[in-house]
Amino acid sequence: MTALIELDGITKVLKGQEQPRTILDGVGLTVNAGQSVAIVGRSGSGKSTLLSVIGLFDRPDSGSYRLDGQEIAKLPERRAAKLRSSHFGFVFQRFFLLKHLTAAQNVAMALVNGQGWLPRRQRRSLVMEALDQVGIAHLAKSRPAKMSGGEQQRVAIARALVRDPKILLADEPTGALDIETGTLVIDALLAATERGCGLILVTHDRDHAARMGQIHDLVDGVLTERVTVR
C-alpha cells in the first residue's frame, strides 16, 4: 500500500537572522490513509513549521516529501494550491471563521476557492452534509458571534471536511477550548479517520495525543520518538 504522506530527511532552516536557525532537522514521518498521528512538543519545537511543510504552506529546504507516492517538495505554488484544495483539510487553534458569514457560508468558503466550480445546490448539499457530520447542521444560518467556542471549532472542522480531504491537519485545535469541548472536537476529528481520512494532530495535550494511533515527539526540530498507541 502506498503511504499517503512520506517525509524523509526534511530540513527547514530559518534564515534572515544573525545566525540561521534549524527549525526542522531531518524529519521523517509516514502517514497512511485512516491513520491518526499526534505530534507533541514544547512551544518553539517546530510543530507548526512541520505542519506548514506538510500542508504545503511552506517548502522544505531539503529532504523528500511524497504525497500519494508523488514527490512534491519543490512544487510550484499554483499546483500546491490545487493540492491543498484537493487533499488537505486544515483546522487551527483560532478558528478563523469570517464573522460576516454564516456557518454555512464559512464552510462553503472551501468550495468557492477557484478550484473548479460547483452549482449552488450541490454546494449547499455538501455544506449541510459536512455540518451534519460534526453535529451542528442546525447552526447553518448562525453567525460565529452567536456560537460557542466548541461550535465555532466544529464549523472550522466542517470547513476542513467539506471537500472530502485525504488528510486533516489540525494545529492545536483544542487549545482555546475547555476539556469537555476539546474532547468533542477530537471526537469529530477521529470520526473523519474512520471514513479513511488521515489525521495529523499537533497538540500540547498528552491526553488528546493518547487518543491518536501514533504519537511523535518533536524536540528542537528532531522527531525523536514514535509511540504506537493502537
Binding site: 505554488e77 494550491a81 486544515f90 477557484g114 470547513r159
Partner: peptide
C-alpha cells in the same frame, strides 16, 4: 490578512 491567508490555506490561488 488572516482572511486572505486562510483562503490561500483552503486552496485559493494567488491570482484569485
Amino acid at each position: 490578512v488572516e482572511e486572505f491567508a486562510l483562503r490561500r490555506a483552503v486552496g485559493t490561488p494567488r491570482t484569485l
